[in-house]
């Protein structure tokens, strides 16, 4: 099979468009990670709460969101909500959809991380007179954070790649930028190889940041 030589000149011509898409991908991922982590933390805390209603809600949330494809959720938000009187722009829909979905996965990771911390830590904190939120914030979460980092890093990378799904709701991120170029020029090899390399660069950079953080945290406990 002949792949044909990659035309560097053509790549240079499409690169600005692809880079614009990549910037949007980064933007989406950044917002989705921030919001998603917040949602994940709240849902995780709900799931281990002593209040039955909160536990029930947390369980329902992860059950529903993890059980339905992100693609369908995005389409519902984008095409469905306007029928219910709520029209949001593409960017908002994309961020909300990705955050809600990422949050459900992160909730499970965070819950497992919190529960992996020895029970004696919470008891020691409470026995000093700390409130539950104080114990969580000062004692449990800082320890859980370290254990959470590798699986959370994975989740962040997944989220970055899944951001390509929002191309279906006309959000011009990297994949849709590539698709638009493809429709206009019909040179899929240069276009998709370039886009793939850009994705790879972004995920690699992310992995490196997470690894660096992990190493720094290991040092901070003196082992």
């Amino acid at each position: 099979m002949f792949l044909g030589p990659l035309d560097i000149n053509f790549i240079m011509k499409i690169l600005p468009n692809l880079l614009l898409g990549a910037v949007m991908t980064i933007k989406l991922t950044f917002f989705a990670i921030t919001l998603g982590t917040l949602i994940g933390l709240l849902v995780a805390l709900a799931k281990i709460s002593s209040f039955k209603v909160l536990r029930w809600f947390g369980g329902l949330y992860t059950w529903v969101i993890r059980g339905i494809p992100l693609l369908l959720q995005l389409m519902f938000l984008y095409y469905g909500l306007p029928f219910m009187g709520l029209t949001l722009n593409e960017f908002t829909v994309a961020v909300i959809g990705m955050s809600i979905c990422g949050g459900a996965y992160m909730a499970e990771i965070i819950r497992a991380g919190i529960q992996s911390i020895d029970k004696g830590q919470m008891e020691a904190a409470l026995s000093m007179g700390m409130t539950y939120p104080q114990a969580m914030r000062r004692i449990i979460l800082p320890q859980a954070y370290k254990r959470l980092l590798p699986p959370m890093g994975n989740e962040f990378i997944t989220l970055m790649k899944d951001s390509s799904l929002v191309s279906v709701i006309c959000m011009t991120e990297l994949l849709r930028a590539a698709n638009l170029l493809q429709n206009a020029t019909f040179r899929p090899i240069e276009i998709y190889v370039s886009a793939g390399i850009l994705y790879l660069m972004m995920t690699t950079f992310f992995t490196m940041v997470v690894n660096r953080l992990e190493k720094r945290l290991a040092v901070s406990e003196g082992n």
Binding site: Q121, E123, A124, A125, E221
Partner: peptide, 9 residues
């Protein structure tokens, strides 16, 4: 406590 439960971080 029996197992100290110092805060490792």
């Amino acid at each position: 406590f029996q197992r100290f439960n110092l805060f490792p971080h």
